[in-house]
Write a protein that binds this DNA or RNA. Structure first.
Lengths: 171, 171
DNA sequence: TATTGTTATACTCTATAACTATA
DNA sequence: TATAGTTATAGAGTATAACAATA
């Protein structure tokens, strides 16, 4: 936080001037670093959020997929089933989520939001959209779109119905 | 793993067909999902690695920055100082890393690889390069380069000396 | 007074594996 | 037999804060 930019040219070991070597071009490494940087940016903008990011995400996905299986949601969010059990139960205990067993497959557990969960989400959704935009403010709109497309590819999500891969110049 | 693609058109609640709503376009969310997917891909290709990815990364960075401060390395890798202490010590106990206090600033701790650490790295580096490439095999070479550039921007790393942002068409 | 690192506690999430209930 | 979920244990890493040594 200090203004120091003065006498640090002597040892070439000044902080933050770390050379990452091969890692400077490693997508998997940069994926991790960028993700951490993005989350830190979000927390810097909005400290003291009433719910954790993971909880806000879960609420969104449950509202958009009412009556989906707990395990199926865990899988898209890359949450381990053993942890999902505790996670969902803690949301249930706080009155945000309902769990119930459907009669046709009594092994499974389906999820729904409670009225309280829906109420919280109404405030959360716009805030989340804004935070994402602010955390990515170093990107132009086009770069943002590009990044989303590339990340979806890496994550194995289907392409969005926009920006066709190759206009093909036919016709 | 089953071939089932038959009678699942009834409830529109078939697994994995989860709709992520807003999150489908959220860069910060996709950053997390893509990162997890990439790491899972790496572990799927190479289970039973002798060192953890975080440990392999640390060795690389120490070799590329001998005598760098422990805290400075923690900062680029987004490792908390309190954890870095334990992390480095465990590497030291395994004979891979050396810690020493320089006489000119006795608050700090500088890091170096041991001969054993260097030996391990000689095998690790090529394997890491290959794993990164394989985990990103869904991308073309150009997409990979693009992704690296965008991730560096998000992570706050300076641009690589290639692919100038705008050729400017001057001259 | 600010910086560097250490220690300690609580908490989140993963890794593994065993286990139950249901299909 | 396979699938969905639960439980338990160990470990990684974060969040926080207090602390010591040095600058």
């Amino acid at each position: 936080m200090a203004a120091g930019k003065e006498a640090i040219v002597e040892t070439e070991l000044d902080p933050a001037a770390i050379d990452l070597g091969d890692l400077e071009r490693s997508a998997s490494f940069l994926l991790r670093i960028a993700q951490l940087a993005a989350y830190e940016a979000i927390f810097a903008i909005a400290p003291n959020m009433p719910l954790k990011l993971s909880e806000q995400t879960l609420l969104q996905v449950i509202e958009d997929n009412p009556d989906a299986r707990q395990g199926a949601i865990a899988d898209v969010l890359h949450i381990k089933w053993s942890h999902m059990t505790k996670f969902v139960r803690s949301m249930e205990m706080r009155g945000l989520v309902e769990r119930y067993v459907p009669p046709n497959d009594r092994r499974s557990v389906l999820l729904r939001l409670t009225e309280e969960g829906r109420a919280q989400l109404r405030e959360i959704r716009p805030r989340m959209r804004k935070l994402d935009a602010e955390a990515m403010s170093m990107l132009t709109a086009q770069e943002h779109r590009q990044l989303v497309g590339l990340l979806r590819k890496v994550a194995g999500r289907p392409p969005l119905a926009e920006d066709p891969p190759a206009p093909a110049r036919a016709e």
